[in-house]
Design a protein around this nucleic acid. Structure first.
Lengths: 239, 239
DNA sequence: CGGGAGGTTGACCACCATCAACTGCTGTGG
DNA sequence: CCACAGCAGTTGATGGTGGTCAACCTCCCG
């Protein structure tokens, strides 16, 4: 049986080779399990945060709201991701944390997580690598919304989603359920839902994929990557 | 006399209270001083990196190139910033590092920097906070290019520049030299140089600032912040 | 004096936003 | 069981923001 702690062990194990003491310590980490419905806020910008959130199952995202009320999704997250590691050192939230689907969340006190990091340099290093890869993804997103046209942007988000699912190792590349509404895709790419709709149609007209609802079937992965200008190097995947 | 190491001590001292052992260790850090001309590459995307770069004097930026050849500047940097801390753990560069002005750079071997971090948890924490604030700034940039119109984007970049100069404590808010060409402002905001030009004129027509060349005089700081939708919280400044 | 980079201005147009209407699906309560 | 509400998705018409191309100017530096 896989416990919540196992998911964290698997995640960190992708970055460093954990020993038995580290694994034991992670299993001993006090964690409160929550089941959260879609589109709920876990944290709001400006909150003083004293608990971190491990995503155990489902999807989540981080978002910010501009002065004019537009939402920008700045990242999406998959099981194994710690959604707000920064709150171990920066207690004031600079963005929102929202669920996308039904999720299972493990809540960990900052104090406990900090203690773990202080005691085990290997774990600290793994978390540091995670944070640095996070930052690399943000840079790619700046590039995505700053320089690419609608077709490339949407295709790029799809590519990143597929590539990260593959790193998780949990499903086939060809068939995947994209959990986001077209409005959410728009908020992530800086487009309107209407234009996302038209853009998805254009890409699928070109034969890169087909979809019925949120079930996507990739027909031509190289073509999709080509439309996106996608190069997975920025994900810094190890294996 | 302020040495290059002093600049790093001052930077890290903003995050944690360094003791004498930490300061001594930073001063003992082997560092090669370089003087680099404007618009030179320090690192190119894809490079295997074994040295980190401390910006001692002048300005630098990080950039990425999209498949279609457009450059996106993803961050700009001021004296005291370590430009590529991530290379301590992720040796493959996912972006370019470029000088903007004449700069003085301190080059530090990754090995030496890693040793410093391993030996002094306080220094590790300060670097971690720096990396996390970096990530927060990237998120704000995603918001900036994703949701704001040209006027807000350009104003926001100006606001961030001024706010970060103020954190450095080195000059007055009202009068500042912006080291970027209009083309570089465009590459940072996802606009063309032509449109940046028109946009700067619009903002200054509204009385927020005046400029002759790259010398900017802020006439109405609240108005500029308002145009930008600027809230400095994302900089996580301490003092 | 000449060349080049950065800045400025004008004309034109494409991409994407906006507004609006309509469809289909799902869940819920009468 | 049906009626209805509400959300996500789809499609059309129209317009504005910002891109593109081009010319010209200024300033600096060789």
């Amino acid at each position: 049986m896989t416990t919540p702690a196992d998911i964290l062990v698997a995640k960190l194990g992708k970055f460093v080779r954990l020993g038995q003491p580290e694994e034991d310590a992670i299993h001993a980490l006090p964690m409160t399990i929550l089941h959260v419905k879609p589109n709920r806020y876990l944290i709001r910008e400006g909150d003083k945060v004293s608990r971190c959130h491990l995503l155990i199952d489902g999807y989540a995202c981080r978002s910010k709201i501009s002065r004019h009320g537009k939402r920008q999704i700045v990242s999406f997250h998959m099981p194994g991701d710690v959604l707000d590691l920064q709150h171990t050192l920066l207690p004031c939230a600079d963005h929102n944390l929202q669920t996308v689907t039904n999720t299972t969340i493990g809540r960990i006190a900052v104090r406990d997580l900090s203690a773990l990091i202080k005691e085990f340099p290997l774990i600290a290093q793994a978390f540091a690598m995670d944070v640095l890869i996070d930052a690399s993804i943000f840079r790619e997103w700046v590039l995505n919304v700053g320089t690419r046209d609608a077709k490339s942007r949407v295709a790029h988000m799809l590519c990143e989603f597929i590539a990260r699912r593959q790193i998780l190792g949990s499903d086939s590349a060809e068939q995947t359920e994209l959990p986001f509404s077209q409005e959410q895709i728009g908020d992530a790419t800086g487009l309107t839902a209407v234009h996302v709709n038209r853009t998805l149609r254009k890409i699928s007209d070109e034969g890169a994929f087909t979809h019925t609802g949120r079930q996507y079937t990739i027909k031509d992965w190289p073509k999709l990557q080509n439309i996106a200008g996608f190069d997975p190097a920025y994900l810094h995947q190890m294996a």
